[in-house]
Design a binder for these strands. Sequence first.
RNA 1: GUGGGUGUGGCCUAAUUGGUUAAGGCACCUGGUUGUGGCCCAGGCGAUUGCGGGUUCGAGUCCCGUCACUCACCCCA
Length: 421
Amino acid sequence: MPSYQRPPGTLDILPADQPYWSRVRSHAKHLAELAGFERLDTPMFEATEVFARGIGQGTDVVDKEMYTFLDKGGRDLTLRPEFTAGVVRAYIENGLYVEVKPQKLYSIGPTFRYDRPQAGRYRQFTQFNAEILGEEDPAADLEIMTLVWDLYAGLGFRDLEFQLNSTGCPRCRPPYVEALRAYYEEHEAQICEDCQRRLEQSPLRVLDCKEETCQPILEKAPHIVDFLCDECAEHFASLREYLELLNRRYTLNHRLVRGLDYYTKTVFEVWASGIGAQSALCGGGRYDGLAELLGGPETPGVGVGVGLERIVIMMKELGVEPPAPRTPEVFLAYLGEEPRKKSLHLMDELRRTDVGVYFAMGRERGLRSQLREADKRAVRYTVILGEDELQSGKATVRDMTSGDQVDVDLTLLVTWLRERV
RNA sequence: GUGGGUGUGGCCUAAUUGGUUAAGGCACCUGGUUGUGGCCCAGGCGAUUGCGGGUUCGAGUCCCGUCACUCACCCCA
């Protein structure tokens, strides 16, 4: 047993798994850049206030899932539980609002939540994040949504569908909340404890209550889309029209409310089965009030967070094979000290000319052992150098597939190999 | 935070149900070939059975605690 283990909910991503990760990351970057998103890297931690204010007190994320600590200077800091709040902080702090509008930004990196680990749920997980800041056009919502759609589609995921809802804005949400409260008060006796509390603190959250007793009540609860103000209704109608126009399937989900307070208007998720009890592959939406809340200029925004671990799980589930990584095609084997030194020179020269090469490490190894290693490393050619070869000035080059061997003049060896690998 | 399941070399599994020194396969290393891989053969390295305590003449096996993993609730990525 090892003396030390990974902290709960963390992952070692071993070399065998890296091809999946490379595939996902490079595909995400490719699509983001294709759509004109520029990369932004923000710190992995921020002042706790950024998340507390941005995401909102009373949310699970802020109240019980943050990794919060004091640094040696007494600063109250938190490992980011999501990207949006930090991205908006960076947008304000660096004055990106004076740059061309809208700003299209993407990020990729670790996020942290102190949840109980489970299938598809980790305490440190990786997100690909994209935001469009300074634009209220529903076309921005559409771009964010097509970006993640294309990400999944490009990896071979089928039967995609958005869960879609609108949560309104500060103008139309209060009347809805009032109607919702009034409706719930009629049924107060039948609803669960959590919902009693939610009704006080974050009323919209009663909508995704899973408690059985609440289900019949929920079914007849008023829908927020029926309360949207003209502006929100029009925004929502346009977005739906555009989604249909581009053939991105969605279902209206009146009960979709997200666990972060900053959302306005559009909210959406993409679900999948195959990652245990977790279903969300990504989640996002519009947050027109967030920048102001964080002390910046009034700036509409829309964005999405994508869980990369869940994508990797799905890829394995679906049998999506990532491309194998490129490994060196040449192995340098040798016998004796002088040939060893000559091999070191060759190693150096080959790598300088961009030929990948393994050097047989360990003194006094038999050729058999070196060839075994070459075989396991799956190279095309093994260069064998002994006293004989040094004498004759010709290296023995073994083709590991056919087993054929040829003598190649040492002065021509680098060129010979470069032409073939 | 709550509940269920599981924990034996790096990986997978066995141990006559409480009975000597914890067994095998994979992987790894060496040799069979004084300079030739994959297949085969032989040998070797590697475990205080997650950890701590208890019951017992005796614990991998039973009990308690703890940690970890895992599944579910909850929340979501």
